[in-house]
């Protein structure tokens, strides 16, 4: 492939969430602030800022499979969303070369009353495939889900594992170079784990980048060759996955 190498470069990334309280969302507060002449002060603007990520530096190149670990709310998913381009940094830069496929939420673009096939079309469109490309790959995607006749049923009849199969099949049909994955991948059954495993290995052969957030250390050891720990928005250095135990002990 021509052009720049597949890479992710994050420099001094800081991301703050403005939390708009339920109260602050009401127009009344704003109007009140105007009429009373700003006496309400800080509650008038209503937004408290939470620093979700601070000063993250990260460089990944083809073949890197990074595992993100950290407690709930430490900023793993936020980092994935920022890498996916959904959250804009407040400071710093995110620079990603390569087609990104984000598998963060099972319910992305899902219509529960539409059939599995329609949902494949919808998700495929959102993921960046053209209508023609979807029809061309429909057979392949349908086979990969292993859902067979269930694809003609509305999605609301699916179990969480079945939904995961569908989501995973579509997301990886995009020939992505960069895969961002939150840990829901673990919901599938053993069969599915096996084919998903094969898919991820295929991706690695294409020399892509994988970023996986998980609490499951075995999963991290299985797929990743590098690991980074995030604690309250502050990241550790990127380390070799063999040093995972050291990293855990250090905390």
């Amino acid at each position: 492939m021509k052009g720049p190498e597949i890479s992710i470069r994050v420099t001094d990334l800081t991301l703050r969430f403005p939390v708009y309280g339920v109260d602050a969302k009401s127009l009344k507060k704003h109007l009140a602030a105007i009429t009373v002449g700003g006496k309400l002060g800080r509650t008038g603007m209503g937004a408290t800022e939470v620093t979700a990520l601070s000063n993250i530096n990260l460089q990944l190149k083809s073949g890197d499979r990074l595992g993100l670990i950290g407690h709930n709310g430490s900023g793993k998913t936020t980092l994935l969303r920022a890498l996916a381009g959904a959250y804009e940094p407040d400071e710093g830069t995110i620079d990603v070369h390569g087609q990104i496929a984000a598998m963060l939420d099972l319910n992305l673009g899902i219509d529960p009353s539409a059939t599995g096939l329609d949902n494949i079309r919808l998700r495929g469109r959102i993921a960046g495939l053209s209508a023609k490309e979807i029809e061309e790959r429909m057979q392949e995607i349908a086979e990969f889900t292993g859902l067979g006749p269930f694809l003609a049923m509305p999605l609301k009849t699916y179990s969480a594992g079945m939904q995961a199969r569908l989501a995973f099949a579509v997301a990886t049909a995009v020939h992505a170079d960069v895969i961002l994955m939150d840990e829901w991948i673990a919901v599938g059954d053993a069969d599915f784990q096996k084919i998903a495993h094969k898919r991820i290995l295929e991706l690695m052969e294409r020399a892509g980048i994988l970023v996986l957030a998980s609490h499951d250390l075995e999963l991290i050891r299985l797929y990743c060759n590098k690991v980074m720990r995030i604690e309250s928005g502050v990241a550790s250095k990127v380390m070799d996955v063999k040093k995972l135990d050291e990293l855990l002990a250090a905390a």
Partner: peptide, 13 residues
């Protein structure tokens, strides 16, 4: 199909 895409996101400038 697009080749390699490029995405840059930065802070306010």
């Amino acid at each position: 199909m697009q080749s390699v895409q490029h995405m840059v996101r930065t802070g306010r400038r």
